[in-house]
Amino acid sequence: DDFNVTIVAGHPPVFRWVRMMPEAFIPTVTAELTKLGHTVTFSEQYGGALAKVGDELEAVEAGLAEIGACSSLFDPAKLAVQNVTYYTPFVSSDVRLVGNVVNDLHANLPAMTEAYAENGVVYIGAPITIDDYLVMSNFPINSLADLQGRKIAAPGAAINWLSGTGAVGVAGNLTTYYNEIKTGVYNGVIVFASAALPGKLYEVAPHITRFGLGAQYSGSLCANKDWWDGLPAEVRTAFLAGSAAAQDWYTTDLENAVTGALAKMAEAGATVTEAPDDMRQAWADGMDNAAKKWATELDAQGKPASEILKTYMDAMRAAGAKPLRNWDQE
């Protein structure tokens, strides 16, 4: 058979989680389907041509695209329970671990995949993980008191991380950080190294403090449910192989980039500081338990977030992560 597949992503292909499609997903699926005697044509719709960031799931649900990079970070109402990592900072900086654990959660907890089914789509893997969040600022952070009264931009739910630090959380997004720090709209940002380097953030916020706020999960590939259910099993297997290849390519490429990114920013004149353990612990201890609030709120809506929170934390601990707060046990 000949398959026509439209792939949608709101971000442009400068981002790694979009590049994983042409780099790994599409070639693998094409090779697998060719082996089976099928042909496949992909139509790649990135950067808002078909749907903007956060609207990918809707486009896939409607059938305008068969496959999409469905964002839980930017679509928190529809993929609510998927945001578990953004409510549990200070758990682990290991992107591979977070990716694997979240992938397992999807495989083992029906509540995880239900969120997709409710929206007419299917989780098909390739979790998009974000490397360890750190603080980049235009002032040195030697103690938590240095954050007092400083305006720090943070994306989406991460604004909750600033509670208790004395910093003023400002809603911001990656694309305008550089300009806004440069002019002084805010004094620093919560950001990840793999984006900070290409965004040249170190030029305006040369003080990089690694607090180990943690690696995060921000979305995955999803497929239109009706389309997916209508595919022969062997074809679905071929697409899943593509997702696995994409996950592997993405994670390896990201890990390499992160190591290089910190080194390159240091070379370019940034100071990279590892926050001492007591400072990290003090930050974590001072935070509201937003995870608890989040879970309670979603539980009330019939989405078993408490169970997911506990399963996630258990799995992370079992894999050797040392959370600074056991968000699920308080």
């Binding site: 529809k78 409510y87 909750n160 509201d288």
Partner: peptide, 9 residues
């Protein structure tokens, strides 16, 4: 009950 924004904020 779809919403925009971030729970907790």
């Amino acid at each position: 009950n779809e919403f925009i924004g971030a729970l907790g904020d």
